[in-house]
């Protein structure tokens, strides 16, 4: 089966001095899939994600994101969306102003911004908050808005770095429904998380350990291959680094 690729990574190596953070990573992410990127702290996830987002160059290997080679990071940045684990909106701007700012940065016209903003705020049932300052929004709403901002310019791929860290269980589920909905419209979602139940929500997951990929498949296939009842059990079984320097 030939599926359209959103991300292609071949033999990606990234070294910092004598330390190899990414050791010959090879994987594909299909268009429209929810791809979970897991690993222990220090396994090399952040390094790889920074390369995929065009923020850092690989030492060697080939990386293509949204059809663009990693040698052209500025073009990559225009085609992706990014949301970090820490909240990244301007607290002293309103909801509308934040959307205008990010839309403007990504080169959208004011007309486009207004039109999409309308649409977006309705879909999120956010219309009552247009003129509200971010700092006055409850935590759960902020997190959802941060996601909405990351996909506002309709990128081909959105990168979510621990988007639900510390969020209450109701908001966490609403957040994942937004992810499902976004993926069902054809956008590719690349997500990291420490919640192992969220790993089960992904179409496919990869687990990194000590700079390498040690597992890559759908959660159900991986559970079956390793004879574990859950991804959590699997993770504890295979993601533990061999030395204890972690």
């Amino acid at each position: 089966m030939d599926r359209e690729m959103a991300i292609e990574v071949r033999d990606l190596v990234k070294r910092f001095g004598s330390f190899t953070a990414n050791d010959r990573l090879t994987f594909d992410v299909y268009k429209g899939e929810i791809f979970g990127f897991l690993g222990a702290n220090g396994a090399g996830k952040t390094t790889a994600m920074r390369i995929l987002c065009g923020l850092s160059r690989p030492t060697s290997g080939r990386v293509t994101v949204a059809g663009i080679d990693s040698g052209n990071p500025e073009a990559i940045k225009r085609r992706i969306g990014y949301m970090s684990q820490r909240f990244s909106l301007y607290e002293d701007l309103t909801v509308n102003e934040n959307l205008e700012l990010y839309g403007g940065i990504y080169g959208m016209t004011m007309k486009e911004i207004r039109q999409r903003r309308e649409e977006l705020l309705q879909r999120l049932s956010f219309t009552g908050y247009c003129e509200t300052l971010i700092q006055a929004l409850p935590l759960g709403l902020r997190q959802k808005l941060a996601f909405a901002v990351a996909v506002f310019h309709e990128p081909e791929i959105v990168f979510l770095d621990e988007p639900t860290s510390g969020v209450d269980p109701v908001t966490r589920r609403q957040f994942w429904e937004m992810i499902y909905e976004t993926a069902s419209r054809g956008m590719t979602v690349f997500v990291t998380t420490h919640y192992m139940d969220e790993a089960e929500y992904c179409d496919r997951i990869t687990i990194m350990s000590e700079g390498r990929i040690v597992a890559l498949d759908s959660p159900s296939a991986l559970r079956e291959q390793h004879g574990t009842a859950s991804v959590e059990e699997l993770f504890v079984k295979i993601a533990r680094p061999k030395n204890t320097n972690s």
Binding site: A40, N41, G166, H194, F235, A239, P241
Partner: peptide, 10 residues
Amino acid sequence: TTGVDAVSRT
């Protein structure tokens, strides 16, 4: 254990 991976948490 916030922000700590599942292995270190265990």
